[in-house]
Amino acid sequence: MRNFTYAAPRNVAEAVRLAGQPGARFIAGGTDLLNLMRDGAQSHGAIIDINGLALGDIVQRNGVIRIGALARMSDVAAHPAVRRSLPVVSEALLNSASPQVRNMAAVGGNVLQRTRCGYFRDSGTTCNKKTPGTGCPALEGENRGHAILGGSDHCLAVHPSDLAVALLAVDAVVLTDRRRFPFADLHVVPGTTPDQETVLGHGELITGFEIPVTPLAARSRYLKLRDRATFEFAVVSVAAALAMRGNTVRDVRLTFGGVATKPWRSPEAEDALRGKPLTTTTITEAGRALVRGAVTRDHNAFKVDLVQRALDGLLRDLGGAR
């Protein structure tokens, strides 16, 4: 790891000013950043420690839960308001990483962990994300873990965060030092610029997230399928929020992890269910709508089937479909 200068500002204005310098980068838990810097995949001349900022609170007020960017994954997962009103958020967090990492990592850092694949950290290979224009070895190489949705000929890496999939399902809003916008707008697909993963400007600080408390979000769940029982990233994951009126789906959110280059919401799958009864037929139709645009490679075609089964299983659990 290259050395760097270190600063620990005490307020947001100071932090943003310091981070605006060329080569500067925020550190929260450090659990993603330090690994990338150790691998030489990233290096920064100045590290700005934001842990001294008062951004760790979780509060519920006027029908909105506000989670500070520095709240730790473990604290958010265990918070009574989150467990009661946003179960999908708590479940996604408890299924992430390990207890130690959850004690360290902040939710702001979590949604900004880098989208990448194994080639990215391998110093011996080319990678468009690491060095734009050098090519993507995953296209014809090892791509079992890669995206079937939202990829391009430039990059197929999946966004690794479970929390991001959950926040997308509960209509979260991102707050930064300078603006607020829907969580759905935070991440971008790789297109021809895979090194660009979010809409944030250099030195822009996420200060927190706001999530409306709704009956939809209160009936929500997360299902994560992985190669071992625990302490592993998702092969495929599904977050679902469901509001029923009698037997009819009044409203629904369906978001996905492990299959796409960014946290993925499928309006097509939701439309296949909204206003309809929850039956084997409608659930199957929703799954088909989700994968209609899927593009598979040599090793990841199994995800097309697996993600539909995961969706099916989760919706039956959540909605008691017949």
């Binding site: 550190i27 838990g29 450090g30 659990t31 330090l34 150790r38 420690d49 130690q100 004690n103 360290m104």
Partner: peptide
């Protein structure tokens, strides 16, 4: 592993368990 994956470096920080390979001493 020196990258957060094995837990051999676990210590308590203010009573909470963390992986000491994933945090800086200055922090």
């Amino acid at each position: 592993c020196d990258r957060g994956e094995c837990g051999a470096c676990t210590v308590l920080a203010d009573g909470r368990r963390i992986k000491s390979c994933l945090t800086l001493a200055v922090m």
